[in-house]
Design a protein around this nucleic acid. Structure first.
Lengths: 243, 243
DNA sequence: CGTCGATGCGCACACTGTACGCAGCACGGA
DNA sequence: TCCGTGCTGCGTACAGTGTGCGCATCGACG
């Protein structure tokens, strides 16, 4: 009864478009890619797996995205949209800068793969969110009255990038171990102290670190490092503000 | 005349060990891996290509190195050995810190792939060179009389890591383009200015940057950013030194 | 009805890291 | 002199990667 020569692909095989499927779109692809990156890190993202998550073949994605690198670029820009900066008329410049830095940091820690990408690609992207981020940052620091706002921005940003990538890399390592941060530290500490044997000053420093690590929440320790360093930078910048 | 049944592998095929070949060793592997990383970046290093460069098969390397990640770990530690730090009895703490920071920076810029690796793996390694680096850094800052030397170290290191990874990533992007830095900037600038359209403050900032970029050596601009930021950090730290 | 552009997909290619088992060697003991 | 015994290198193989290419399908428009 088969009217056509084609063996299987009949009318029945070709089911009509199911309505729940929002189809493949650049936004959906980027969104899902970010979800995968957040969940399992930068190595876990492959075009095939991403396609599978979207009920699509791997190569279908290439209709909407030129290359995997471009996809990463889009993901980075998307994430930059999450950073929120204080308005440019903030009265207290230190508080405002601290809030901005904190927002950058927490965004990076929410998406630790950012650190890997920034290490290879940098901030040379020109996506809309990154541009708007830069604009608001420029407006903010200009409103503070810095004579060379872009230098002040660069300095703060450099510090914040440095601490964010360090922390993100650390948290990635911890995550790969499958343990909690505290447990991982407890397991690492003996090895570190052994490696520090023969290094007098370092050994003492590690011993002190081990003591406080045992008594304090690791996240709290990281916070305090962040705020200490940021205060140093802000103190240095304060000297460059008029009056 | 063939006395054995084996077809080809005769005494003649099995040539005796050639003397020039230094054999495969962990040191040689790491050295060659670093050379490849320096030359062509982190994506260009594959076990097969590395093996080929050593006149060896890919899997032979695994006799000396457990995994590619471990190889990278060894490479990172090796490179940390290149950073040289001032002696702990330096009189001028600002000059000494600046020299140390500079050394870290130039080492990173000589091995830009470091930025990618630090972004994924961080400084959690415990290699001998890294330990010795930490030790000398700790001794240095302790000798300056900082009440909390490790916090001062972290702050400086954070800034230096931030600027080094940013610069390294940038230079990697430039290198991939195959152009000189100046040419790449000249080509990028119009796109950046177009992307900044609609962002008033940013557009102005870009215009100023474009003007100086056209008149100044890019490396000099990067240097000045580095020194400006470092001075800010040092000023901030100075407030925390006794007297 | 015919055509066309956009979309998704299967296949294929070159390449990756690395597990496994075999072949040759140096060496120590019988 | 011969036989293990361990160490080193290699060939093969497997599962997985990014992506170029050409075909099938489909909605829209003439």
């Amino acid at each position: 009864m088969a009217s056509k020569a084609h063996p299987i692909p009949s009318v029945w095989a070709r089911r009509q478009r199911e309505p729940e499927q929002p189809a493949l779109s650049r936004e959906a692809i980027v969104r899902e890619a970010i979800a995968m990156l957040d969940a399992d890190g930068v190595d876990a993202l492959s075009m095939r797996k991403l396609g599978a998550r979207l009920n699509a073949g791997a190569t279908s994605l290439y209709r909407h995205v030129a290359t995997k690198d471009e996809l990463m670029e889009l993901a980075v820009d998307e994430v930059f949209g999450e950073i929120d900066l204080p308005a440019a008329d903030s009265a207290d410049w230190r508080a405002a800068t601290t809030r901005a830095a904190q927002s950058f940091r927490t965004t990076t820690l929410n998406h630790p793969w950012l650190a890997s990408v920034l290490g290879t690609a940098g901030l040379a992207y020109l996506g809309p969110n990154l541009m708007s981020f830069s604009e608001r940052l420029a407006a903010l620091f200009t409103s503070f009255g810095f004579p060379e706002p872009s230098r002040a921005i660069d300095t703060v940003l450099t510090f914040v990038i440095g601490i964010s990538t360090s922390e993100a890399a650390w948290l990635t390592t911890v995550a790969r171990s499958g343990e909690t941060e505290a447990a991982f530290i407890a397991r690492l500490m003996p090895a570190a102290q052994e490696a520090a044997a023969g290094h007098a000053v370092l050994a003492e420093s590690y011993a002190a670190a081990a003591a406080t690590a045992a008594a304090t929440d690791p996240a709290e320790i990281r916070d305090s490092k962040f705020f200490y360093g940021l205060e140093v930078v802000l103190d240095g910048l304060a000297l460059r503000l008029p009056h």
